[in-house]
Amino acid sequence: MAVNIQIYSNGNSASKSITFNFVEDVLAPKDASATISPEASYYFRVTTSAKQTNNVAFPVKIVRGLDELVLNRQKQRIVNTANAYSTIKEMVVDYTYDFINGHAANLYGSSCTVQRSMKFS
């Protein structure tokens, strides 16, 4: 079972969804030259079939702990702090906000790349 969050755009009369699933995998690093740990990790996998406004798919987001903040794991939205999320609910709400609204590059000096908002049209 996973949690599906439905987002409805009144202006476009269209719905999109974001899925939060809790899974277990051996995670391979992005860097091909890095050593892969054979140990399994338990984490949240956040996915959506929605596209960004430039028609680019959203990347899959992996959340291994409550200190993995949205915006390149360094800063929370709005409140410019490096504090970890205190609850799973707070994490889910913040990631959902980020999918819907997108963010600018290097927001709060986090070195994150730009992400467009969710496309409903």
Binding site: M1, A2, N4, N21, E24
Partner: peptide, 10 residues
């Protein structure tokens, strides 16, 4: 050992 799967819920 472990495995994971996904499905939707309301």
């Amino acid at each position: 050992s472990s495995s994971s799967s996904s499905s939707s819920s309301s």
